[in-house]
């Protein structure tokens, strides 16, 4: 493995206070979703990628792009050769989220790829002492796997079909509370999004049928009409079926993705490919772009 030829250093000194809080929240969100994650470093952006735990090479379930300029004052990256400039690292997401929590009170963070007993992502965190003028430096070594080039293709941005509808989401915190209540009753939730800006979450069990309806949401794109030829799309009064997209998803996954409410964001949209896929897209002021893919459940 040509790891020794790779040197990479990125450091953030003096980040804007707001911006410094974002990466810990992002990584915490990721660590709640999955034990493992992949960090891809390229000259312009850094990426966090999570693949589905259960099945080997599968398209990512989470894709997060962070422009390095926003967070790092210095960024050096040397890849294997000109054609392979990027670096892909796999590591335990909790190992990264724990040290990053201390960033709140830190003055600067330096991230390095180092070779110790094994390849490590080394974090050097400089933090001010609460009692004196001096600063402390804490170093965290996170064991990482350098992902060989032949596996890079497992971590490419998923090619998703064009959504049938793209609708603004209500407050993620509120949404998560509701989903968490529903999740105790049913393992899957049906999401309906209408061209009129209505979003419905519904569960159905032997004992209860619960529907939470949001209205007045901005619809950013609608590619209807959609074929509704089967029984699952239950008729709702006054709702034009051709203007409605439906997808049934795993309630637990949806709830986990909604942990992203910790990341301060300016816009979250929900893209639905009728009966196949729900994508949650979150954008922040720093141009961080986080996408979660939840595949639909079909009976």
């Amino acid at each position: 493995m040509p790891t020794t030829r790779r040197q990479q250093q990125a450091s953030a000194s003096d980040p804007a206070p707001e911006a410094a809080h974002q990466p810990p929240h992002i990584v915490t969100t990721i660590s709640k979703l999955s034990k493992e994650c992949v960090l891809r470093l390229s000259s312009e952006k850094i990426y966090f990628i999570v693949n589905d735990d259960s099945s080997g090479p599968a398209p990512p379930v989470l894709w997060c792009e962070i422009p390095q300029m926003m967070f790092f004052s210095e960024y050096q990256l040397i890849g294997v050769d000109d054609e392979h400039k990027d670096i892909y690292l796999g590591f335990s997401s909790v190992n990264l989220s724990r040290p990053l929590v201390t960033l709140k009170s830190a003055k600067s963070l330096k991230m390095k790829l180092t070779k110790k007993q094994c390849p490590c992502l080394t974090l050097e965190i400089e933090s001010a002492s609460s009692t004196s003028q001096q600063t402390r430096q804490v170093t965290h070594d996170i064991p990482a796997i350098v992902i060989p080039r032949k596996c890079w293709s497992d971590f490419y941005e998923p090619q998703v079909p064009k959504p049938d509808i793209s609708i603004e989401l209500p407050s993620l915190k509120q949404l998560r509370t509701t989903i968490d209540r529903m999740r105790t009753m049913s393992s899957d939730v049906v999401i309906r999004a209408s061209a009129e800006g209505r979003l419905t979450l519904q569960i159905k069990t032997d004992t209860a049928k619960v529907s939470t309806r949001f209205k007045g949401l901005t619809v950013e794109a609608f590619e209807g009409p959609i074929e509704h030829s089967d029984s699952e799309s239950e008729t709702q009064i006054n709702e034009d079926q051709s203007r409605l997209c439906v997808c049934r998803v795993d309630a637990k996954k949806l709830s986990m993705f909604l942990n992203a409410d910790q990341i301060s964001h300016n816009r979250v949209t929900c893209n639905v490919v009728h009966k196949r896929l729900v994508t949650l897209c979150l954008r922040t002021d720093e141009n961080v772009h986080l996408q979660c893919y939840i595949t639909g459940i079909v009976y």
């Binding site: 209500p170 509120q174 509701t178 004992t207 209860a208 049928k209 619960v210 529907s211 309806r213 949001f214």
Partner: peptide
């Protein structure tokens, strides 16, 4: 506190 949302439940 929020006006654009409602929930209806049918409990058997």
């Amino acid at each position: 506190s929020v006006h654009n949302v409602m929930t209806d439940c049918e409990i058997s």
